[in-house]
């Protein structure tokens, strides 16, 4: 890749990652949310991998922790759902907003998002989904980029 591309790729991917974090955190107010923000962060990581190559990309994370991160995203989502199940009797009940008034106020204040829009657990769910989508898409691209061509293997041997 050319030098100019290498010079501008890192700032662009950092900007993309910051935009993605912004999209995730404002998902309940503005267009966007967990998927979109997570996919934006993943796009930043992918750009950096494509330009600098898999080995010496400045933004990279260890291969061994990928599945742990992915599972944490989905497990967090399920745990928030289980809180609703055990506190209110319905899976994924919005314990923070509590529009049916069926849970104690103490639990509601724990999960209430400090925001005037009364979004309840939606921002937390956004964060978990964003983490999951980001790690999932990056993992697929890392696996694709790390796949060795037949010709390359022959050359190595």
């Amino acid at each position: 890749m050319s030098q100019i591309l290498k010079l501008i790729a890192l700032p662009i991917s950092i900007i993309l990652i910051c935009l993605g974090i912004m999209t995730i955190l404002g998902g309940h107010i503005t267009p966007g949310g967990g998927f979109q923000g997570g996919a934006m962060i993943a796009a930043g990581v992918i750009l950096s991998i494509l330009v600098y190559g898999l080995g010496n990309s400045p933004i990279e994370f260890s291969h061994t922790y990928i599945e742990v991160f992915e599972s944490i995203g989905a497990l967090g989502y399920i745990v928030l759902g289980l809180v609703g199940l055990f506190a209110g009797g319905f899976f994924l009940y919005n314990v923070g907003a509590d529009i049916f008034n069926i849970i104690p106020a103490s639990i509601q204040t724990v999960f209430h998002y400090p925001d005037t829009t009364n979004a309840g657990i939606i921002p937390y769910l956004n964060i978990f989904v964003g983490l999951k989508v980001f790690v999932g898409l990056s993992a697929i691209v890392i696996a694709f980029a790390g796949f060795k061509k037949l010709v390359e293997e022959d050359a190595e041997q």
Partner: peptide
């Protein structure tokens, strides 16, 4: 997102079978 996921799996299978 479902579409993108199935696409990735199909392409992975194609890459291995090309080898």
């Amino acid at each position: 997102v479902i579409g993108a996921s199935t696409l990735a799996v199909m392409l992975a299978l194609v890459m291995v079978l090309y080898r």
